[in-house]
Nucleic acid binder design. Structure first.
Length: 485
RNA sequence: GCGGAGUUAGUCCAGCCCGGCACGACGUCAGCUUCCCAAGCUGAAGGUCGCGGGUUCAAAUCCCGCACUCCGCACCA
């Protein structure tokens, strides 16, 4: 099983495919979800809501994707979310200016330095193109945000490069009007946009992608004062520090100081419990503590939740302790007050963030669920029943003798409650195979016995076993088996 | 962005060297058959041959440019 097979399945069975594919000017890095993919995504998001938002009583918001320039002045994205780039005048090769200078002259110029500093060093040290020894144009910044023009005057604004900025910007109003009490999580699902230099591998590196972000606002003096920690204290985490994965409970992780405090451990704990329920193989996962150089510019400590796939370790979630970086800078830029009362103590909350990549998570669910059943010559998507795009196929064994009509009747009774697929045509085995490929956990089939005793067969996707079941019990039976855990 | 390899129906692909009606399989659809796992028979639909330009009486095929995909480099909040 590999990446190629997953993308083939995705294209053939309506999970996802390239955007604007009929036109030759379709830019890279944009993909669409088809019916199966959309159904899977909706169910994944519902699971996320159940296991994180509702479980922790977070607030969920839905902010706008276009945000004002000031937001990104304050957030630092305008200056920091950009790479200094040097272009060779002769061969047009493009290099990261800071990396190239460091390599050739061993002089370390910080990435965020003034552009003229790069030019000065390039001139003084006579740095030329590593490929053709041509001379360079002036160093410029390539900002990874998409700029948009608002209204007839085309005022600068930007597509958000992460969903969380609206959570920070909205925090003062939300905390006041929703009767907030620290610690409080604010969650958001939505699209983010990054102008990647080189998008790759379909859903794994997109220019337009879905994030599910949670920002937990907390009192920095009470990070170990968390009653609900007991819910997850025995939950096992696979923590990677110094190139080694250690499996330990959340409690052990805090006690041994591998994790800085109970608040961080609690959220990593409920996160891993969520991922267990997605069917992703947790034994192929790790929380990797990022080193100083790998961390984002706003993070004071960071753990990536990574999963092993056929294309290597894949970062699904970035967990960043952002301290008061965001609230402080928005407060300074906007003059809005972000301090809140916590037990009569005035505090500027710190933020712990759980920033999930939905598209990558969905890819991993597909890959970890993909099974080549050689014995039965079939491909099976063994995903959790509650995530399956189709819950149940409704089939007639043959069309004649009134079986089709009976099948239609059953279908009409089920279609509002479940994601169903009605199919009368072709060989029964072929129809079962098709359902296996979209991960439908059940298929019910109307046969001649149905007309005599009002029972149908129910076939299980993974085992291919069948049992007979009364039509009157179908709904109840399915409800039990496709319910969220 | 760079280097390499590719791009022909929903999918896999033949044809390209040597220009002359775009081939086959799988899949899809309809009918027949069929009492449970990709069976069989009959028929059908489905193509801007990645895009644009050039050469030619004639281009999937030869030439030029571009885009996209994959691999590697670089990049990756």
């Amino acid at each position: 099983m590999n990446y190629e097979q997953i993308i083939q399945l995705a294209l053939e069975r309506g999970f996802y495919f390239p955007s604007c594919e009929i036109y030759s000017d379709a830019p890279a890095g944009f993909w669409e979800y088809g019916p199966s993919g959309t159904s899977l995504k909706n169910k994944f998001i519902e699971l996320w809501r159940r296991e994180l938002v509702r479980r922790d009583r977070m607030w969920e918001i839905d902010g706008s994707q276009i945000m004002s320039k000031s937001v990104f002045v304050a957030s630092g994205h305008l200056s920091s979310f950009a790479d200094p780039i040097a272009t060779c005048q002769k061969c047009k090769s493009i290099f990261r200016a800071d990396k190239m200078i460091a390599e050739i002259t061993s002089i370390v110029v910080p990435e965020s330095a003034d552009l003229s500093e790069f030019d000065t060093i390039i001139k003084e040290k006579n740095v030329t193109c590593p490929k053709c020894h041509g001379t360079f144009d002036s160093v410029r910044k390539f900002n990874m945000m998409f700029k948009v023009g608002i209204g007839p005057q085309s005022e600068d604004a930007y597509l958000r490069p992460e969903t969380c900025q609206s959570i920070f910007v909205d925090f003062p109003r939300l905390f006041k009007t929703m009767r907030g009490k620290l610690p409080i999580g604010i969650a958001q699902i939505g699209k983010s946009f990054r102008n990647e230099i080189s998008p790759r591998q379909s859903l794994l590196r997109l220019r337009e992608f879905y994030q599910a972000e949670i920002e937990v606002f907390c009192n920095p003096n009470k990070l170990n004062d968390l009653e609900r920690f007991s819910e997850i204290e025995n939950t096992e985490l696979r923590l990677m520090t110094d190139d080694r994965i250690q499996v330990m409970s959340c409690k052990e992780a805090v006690d041994s100081k591998v994790l800085p405090n109970k608040l961080v451990a609690y959220y990593l704990g409920i996160l891993v419990e969520f991922y267990q329920k997605t069917g992703i193989d947790i034994s192929k996962s790790r929380f990797r503590k990022l080193g100083e150089k790998e961390k984002a510019f706003y993070a004071s400590s960071a753990f990536d939740f990574e999963v092993e796939t056929t294309v290597g370790w894949l970062e699904l979630v970035a967990c960043n302790y952002r301290s008061d970086y965001d609230l402080k800078s928005h407060s300074v830029t906007s003059k809005e007050k972000f301090e809140v009362l916590d037990d009569n103590e005035k505090v500027l909350p710190h933020v712990f963030e759980i920033s999930m990549g939905i598209d990558r998570s969905l890819y991993t669910i597909l890959e970890h669920g993909f099974r080549e059943d050689k014995e039965n010559d079939r491909i099976v998507l063994s995903i959790k029943p509650y995530l399956a795009p189709i819950h149940v196929g409704v089939l007639s064994l043959v069309k004649k003798d009134g079986l089709a009509e009976k099948t239609d009747e059953i279908f009409l009774n089920l279609r509002r409650k479940f994601d169903t697929f009605l199919d009368h045509s072709g060989a029964i085995g072929r129809r079962y195979r098709r359902l296996d490929e979209v991960g439908a956990p059940f298929a019910i089939t109307v046969d001649h016995q149905t007309l005599q005793d009002d029972t149908v067969t129910m076939r299980m996707r993974d085992s291919m076993n069948q049992e007979r079941i009364k039509i009157s019990e179908l709904e109840h039976h399915l409800e039990n088996h496709v319910a969220y855990p």
